[in-house]
Amino acid sequence: MSSKITVIGAGSWGTALANLLAENGEKVKIYARDKAVVDSINKQQRNHKYFPEHKLDNKLTAFSDLEAGLEGSDVFVISVPTQALASVLKQIENLISSDSLIVSTAKGIEEKSFKTNSQMIKEAGFKNVVVLSGPTHAEEVMEQLPTAIVSASQNKKLAEKIQDLFMSSYFRVYTNPDVKGVELGGALKNVIAVASGICDGLNFGDNTRAALITRGLNEMSRFVNYHGAKDLTLVGLAGMGDLVVTCTSMHSRNRRFGIEIGKGKTLMEAKEEVNQVVEGVKTARAIYNWLNSEEVELEMPITRQVYQVLFEAKDPYQAVEELMLRSKKHEMESVVDNSLWNI
């Protein structure tokens, strides 16, 4: 028996997920504020704004009326940027049951509250939340290229239900109970991807990118450990997998944005060039402000330098130089036993 699903948000990722679910035989609605997008999906089977070249499954129906789009569904996939989530939750909290199954797909941290997406959803009164995250470019999902992702929930049955809904011949879904690790890893990797793009914009090479990805993973590990999550999650799809793809691909809006910064463009100029939401920008500011306001003693040099380049007009070359000239230390400082050295 097919599920009745509404995808809230018809951006590139929302569209790709809605189309995948429709291909899987589910009854899928997609909500978009832009009536032109709704019309193009319903009349031409295309999202003219994001995927004009791709014909969408004919079982997919679009709505610009939110209440009509939500009516009759029992699974709701929220695919809007983190900073827009609070507004969406206010709109839907009286329209759907608190027992509904909510799937969160955004990767970020809310700036003012420093909460993850699943935290915000639960605080809005929804009990059943699953996080879907991993190394997944919407463009490649639309091309049906082999992709793997994580369905994260402490409730095994919910995680497995979403696993079953999304699994296909080209879209493999793994379950993971470490919701916090999955979400925090997914948020912070966007900041590291901005840094990777900056290095590319400065015409640095493969050595630089490899070092940045590796040290970025180390920074992510410290961050999730501090918040009580499991660093083992970061060797998986929602950590290393997502970090690698976001730091290396031209599909990555965070990396593309960073490239423009590295070339000398301002924050606003780089945003205009990418012309999509760049989650890493606000995540960098959220983490930087949290580190300072809470007086947290947590070593996050890459995040700090990204913030200073973006918001304090620091020269990118100087930022990289300061990263290279930091005090000497052991690579695995937190885990190496000094007794292992041959002194």
Rank of each mutant, 00 (worst) to 15 (best):
S104D: 08
N94H: 07
D39G: 03
N47F: 04
L298E: 00
S100Y: 09
W341Y: 12
K49E: 01
E299M: 12
G186N: 10
V278H: 00
T283H: 00
S3V: 03
T105R: 05
A124M: 05
N289T: 02
G201R: 05
G14Y: 02
T248M: 14
G201C: 12
G241Q: 06
K90P: 01
N24G: 05
K157D: 12
V131R: 06
K314D: 15
S73C: 15
R33A: 02
A16E: 05
N203E: 07
H48G: 10
Y174I: 02
K115F: 06
L158I: 03
L101M: 04
M240A: 10
T303Q: 09
G14C: 14
V88L: 04
T208N: 15
F171R: 01
V224P: 04
R255K: 10
L85K: 03
S2K: 15
H251Y: 12
M300S: 02
V38I: 10
I213R: 00
G108D: 07
Y317C: 13
E140N: 11
F76S: 09
M220I: 05
S113C: 04
V38D: 06
L20K: 15
Q308V: 06
K157P: 11
E260D: 09
Q305M: 09
Q144T: 07
L237F: 01
L340D: 14
I198P: 12
G186K: 13
L95E: 15
V37M: 03
A187T: 06
R326K: 08
V336G: 01
G186P: 00
L291V: 01
V38M: 13
Q305T: 07
L56F: 06
M268K: 14
K271M: 07
Y50A: 03
L89I: 05
I41H: 06
N338K: 02
A32V: 04
G205L: 06
M1Y: 09
L340C: 09
N42G: 08
S169H: 03
